[in-house]
């Protein structure tokens, strides 16, 4: 097995493709990975007030999306937050 694949566990062409997709949206929206990290921390704080989430697995990123049948794509923020236990944390 080549060393690159041993380290990343994925084919490097696929890694390049994924990195580029994020990079280009970030370039177009003038939004840095640090900015995403800040959003991630805030979302984490708010959501964890209500449900038990897996903080290590939370994913925040930018993608392209089409809204309301428009032909032009706009940048969209997506988050993927794995919930450990779907019960309110005794707030209500």
């Amino acid at each position: 097995m080549n060393p690159v694949r041993r380290v990343f566990g994925r084919r490097s062409g696929e890694i390049a493709r994924k990195r580029l997709k994020l990079l280009l949206v970030a370039d177009k929206t003038n939004c840095s990975p640090e900015f995403l990290e800040m959003i991630k921390d805030d979302i984490l704080q708010v959501v964890s007030k209500y449900v038990d989430i897996d903080a290590g697995e939370i994913e925040v990123g930018l993608t392209k999306a089409f809204f309301c049948g428009s032909l032009e794509s706009v940048p969209a923020l997506y988050t993927n937050i794995p919930i450990r236990c779907l019960s309110y944390k005794g707030i209500i």
Partner: peptide
């Protein structure tokens, strides 16, 4: 050859 083994974008 690199595209084939997944180490270059197609």
């Amino acid at each position: 050859d690199m595209v084939r083994r997944g180490d270059m974008m197609s």
